[in-house]
C-alpha cells in the first residue's frame, strides 16, 4: 500500500473506532484511537480523523458520564425526577453522538474532511 492508501485506511479506522467507542466497545475503542493517533503526522487526513474521533470520545464521556453522574448525585437516587431527566437526557444525547460518529464514518469513506469545522481543532 502506498502512503495515501495507508492514510485513508487509518482515517476510516479512526472514524470506526470512534463509533465503536460509543457503542459496542467503550474505552477499548478510545485506546485504539490513541494508538492510531500515535502513528499519524500533522496536517494529514488520518490525523484529522483521529483528532475528530478523540474529541468526540472525550466530549461524549463528559456529556454522558460526568453530567449523568452529577445529576444523579445532585438530584438524589430516590427522586423520580432524577430518573426522568437522566433517561431522556442520556438516550437523546447518546443517540446524537452515535449519529454524528456515523456521519463522520461515511464522510471518511469519501476521503474528504467534514464540511464544517467540528471538533477538529
Amino acid at each position: 500500500m502506498n502512503t495515501d492508501d495507508l492514510q485513508l485506511k487509518r482515517a476510516t479506522s479512526s472514524a470506526l473506532l470512534s463509533l465503536l467507542n460509543l457503542t459496542a466497545l467503550p474505552v477499548i475503542g478510545f485506546i485504539g484511537l490513541l494508538y492510531v493517533y500515535s502513528k499519524t503526522k500533522p496536517n494529514t487526513i488520518d490525523r484529522y480523523y483521529a483528532v475528530v474521533g478523540i474529541k468526540t470520545s472525550l466530549l461524549a464521556g463528559i456529556a454522558l458520564l460526568l453530567v449523568t453522574l452529577l445529576v444523579i448525585l445532585l438530584g438524589g437516587f430516590e427522586s423520580p425526577l432524577t430518573w426522568v431527566y437522566v433517561t431522556s437526557y442520556f438516550v437523546i444525547v447518546h443517540a446524537s453522538f452515535i449519529l454524528f460518529a456515523t456521519w463522520t464514518l461515511t464522510r471518511s469513506w469519501t476521503g474528504e474532511k467534514l464540511k464544517r469545522q467540528i471538533l477538529s481543532k
Binding site: 500500500m1 495515501d4 485513508l8 485506511k9 469513506w109 469519501t110 476521503g111 474528504e112
Partner: peptide
C-alpha cells in the same frame, strides 16, 4: 489531498 474512494471495498483491497 488524497483522491476520493468510490467504493467501500477499495479501502481494503486484499
Amino acid at each position: 489531498m488524497p483522491t476520493p474512494i468510490t467504493n467501500i471495498e477499495a479501502i481494503e483491497p486484499k
